[in-house]
């Protein structure tokens, strides 16, 4: 187990270094000169030079990269050229919104996905399975941004049950917070629910035909106990892995969901930074996103290998 952990951690570290290089070079490949953009409409050459010096744009790329990495390691991503504020501060303000959105979506996806997956597997060949499969396929095919618009039209405009936009921190007003986060969470969680449903159904079908389930039935256990206590419990290993991997996808989905519902989260911060050529913020946000993605994948791999030893043996071969 230890060699496997070390190998996976080493691979993740190499990936992280490569990611930092890609982010650094990618941001510098963006069209437009940020110093010129910051100097205003009629830029004074001296002011432009001063801005270049202040932000280190006049130094060589390796020096700029080293400064970027050594600061990033200490949690310092520089100053936003758009707001003049610390990028770390912007990230820390935006992160709770996205984390809450991701957790609510995950909760919805888990409840809907596992419930529908179990129902489809237990009632195989009946209308329930057909319906669950059809809804899952739709969930995979409906673009989240369109679903967001349709839900706003239905439940914020036609029947004003939920708010269409804006954010209130959960600490300020928990009920208003939920009132505003319900639709975004549903939009972000729907695609994931479809993936979880398909995975749960597939794993449950495999478990339900396994010998230990037959034995459990043979010894007279109640149907509920066989389904939930034996089959589902074992199916959850794979489902948990899929859920973990989907967490990374949530970050991607959050970009557009936050844009539709005007939520001041990570996604909106990313898009605003890209639109305004805000180098420091783009670097910080993308690096944090990629790091979170790598760490989640590493954690899922490690957890999975702890649960199922065949993974680490297979990986070592």
């Amino acid at each position: 187990m230890i060699p496997y952990l070390l190998r996976r951690a080493g691979q993740s570290l190499v990936t992280l270094v490569l990611v930092s290089v890609v982010v650094f070079l990618g941001v510098r490949a963006l069209p437009g000169d940020p110093a010129l953009a910051m100097a205003g409409e009629t830029p004074d050459p001296q002011l432009v030079a001063a801005i270049r010096h202040q932000y280190g744009f006049d130094q060589s790329l390796p020096v700029q990269y080293w400064k970027f990495v050594s600061s990033a390691v200490t949690g310092n991503f520089g100053i936003s050229s758009r707001t003049g504020m610390s990028v770390t501060h912007s990230i820390l303000s935006a992160a709770p919104v996205t984390v809450e959105l991701a957790l609510l979506s995950l909760l919805l996806a888990t409840l809907i996905g596992i419930g529908a997956g179990v129902a489809a597997a237990v009632r195989r060949g009946r209308p329930t399975e057909w319906l669950a499969n059809a809804v899952a396929l739709l969930g995979l095919s409906v673009p989240s941004f369109w679903l967001g618009m349709v839900l706003v039209l239905a439940f914020a405009v036609a029947i004003p049950l939920f708010a269409a936009s804006g954010f209130v921190p959960i600490s300020a007003d928990p009920l208003d917070n939920l009132h505003r986060m319900a639709l975004p969470a549903l939009v972000l969680g729907s695609g994931m629910a479809a993936v979880v449903m398909r995975q749960t159904r597939s794993s449950m079908l495999e478990s339900l035909s396994a010998d230990y389930v037959r034995t459990a039935r043979a010894k007279g256990l109640a149907r509920r106990q066989v389904v939930y206590g034996h089959a589902l419990r074992n199916s959850l290993i794979t489902v948990t892995t899929v859920l973990g991997l989907q967490l990374g996808q949530l970050i991607s989905g959050a970009v557009v969901t936050e844009q539709i519902f005007v939520l001041p989260g990570f996604g909106k911060l990313t898009l605003d930074a890209v639109t305004n050529r805000d180098y420091a913020t783009i670097q910080g946000v993308v690096l944090c996103t990629a790091t979170a993605y790598i760490l989640v994948n590493l954690l899922v791999d490690v957890l999975y290998s702890a649960i199922d030893p065949r993974i680490r043996i297979g990986g070592a071969a």
């Binding site: 990936t15 490569l18 990611v19 970050i251 991607s252 989905g253 970009v255 990629a290």
Partner: peptide, 14 residues
């Protein structure tokens, strides 16, 4: 792995 570390939309938007 490096490319997979960027969520699809972040990579595409970038």
């Amino acid at each position: 792995d490096t490319m997979l570390a960027f969520p699809f939309l972040v990579l595409a938007v970038g």
